[in-house]
Simulated assay, not measured.
Amino acid sequence: MGKKKTNSIIRIQKAVRASKRKYTSSLHDLSQESVPGEMVTTIIEHPPSVPCGDEYNALQEILSTTPGVFWKPRRKKEYIIDSSQLKPWQIIGFEHYADYIGYLGTNALSNHTADLDFLFNDDKENYND
């Protein structure tokens, strides 16, 4: 039996279709991943605390003996930062997803950790198959 001869045009069309599928899926992933997350910062202001006991007496003594000195209590601010909506590339410090992809490509890094898990003997999956 002889080797089946394939038509070159059909072979090229299949390769083009496969590359288009690959390109559109990676473009779709890029568009979904490139939407940045948002860091939510909540500021809670607490009323100023009045010194008590000896601190209050010392403060009153300083204020009464020194002209031009006054006490201005300030509100205490409590900052609550929620970074759970940030994407991993934002946490690393990149402002745009395209910059992150370019960094990975330039430094020949993979976006997947499975390769590194194999190097560091992480036995979550069996890679010897």
Rank of each mutant, 00 (worst) to 15 (best):
residue 42 T to F: 03
residue 73 P to M: 09
residue 69 V to E: 05
residue 60 Q to E: 15
residue 44 I to D: 05
residue 74 R to G: 03
residue 31 S to C: 05
residue 60 Q to T: 14
residue 33 E to G: 02
residue 39 M to K: 14
residue 73 P to N: 09
residue 43 I to D: 10
residue 55 E to D: 14
residue 69 V to D: 07
residue 32 Q to I: 10
residue 63 L to K: 01
residue 30 L to Y: 12
residue 59 L to Y: 04
residue 58 A to S: 11
residue 30 L to E: 09
residue 55 E to K: 14
residue 38 E to W: 03
residue 46 H to R: 15
residue 74 R to V: 02
residue 37 G to L: 01
residue 75 R to V: 05
residue 56 Y to D: 07
residue 41 T to G: 08
residue 31 S to D: 12
residue 67 P to F: 01
residue 46 H to E: 15
residue 65 T to V: 08
residue 45 E to G: 05
residue 71 W to A: 03
residue 42 T to S: 14
residue 74 R to H: 06
residue 37 G to I: 00
residue 35 V to R: 06
residue 40 V to E: 14
residue 64 S to D: 13
residue 52 C to Q: 15
residue 58 A to Q: 12
residue 59 L to I: 05
residue 63 L to Q: 00
residue 41 T to F: 06
residue 46 H to T: 02
residue 65 T to N: 05
residue 52 C to V: 12
residue 53 G to W: 01
residue 62 I to K: 04
residue 72 K to G: 14
residue 71 W to F: 10
residue 34 S to D: 04
residue 44 I to G: 02
residue 40 V to P: 00
residue 51 P to A: 13
residue 73 P to K: 10
residue 45 E to I: 09
residue 62 I to V: 11
residue 65 T to D: 15
residue 56 Y to A: 14
residue 36 P to L: 01
residue 70 F to S: 13
residue 32 Q to T: 11
residue 69 V to W: 03
residue 40 V to C: 08
residue 58 A to G: 07
residue 31 S to V: 09
residue 73 P to V: 10
residue 54 D to R: 14
residue 72 K to V: 12
residue 39 M to R: 12
residue 48 P to M: 13
residue 71 W to P: 00
residue 66 T to M: 08
residue 33 E to T: 04
residue 51 P to H: 14
residue 71 W to Q: 02
residue 48 P to G: 02
residue 38 E to D: 10
residue 49 S to F: 04
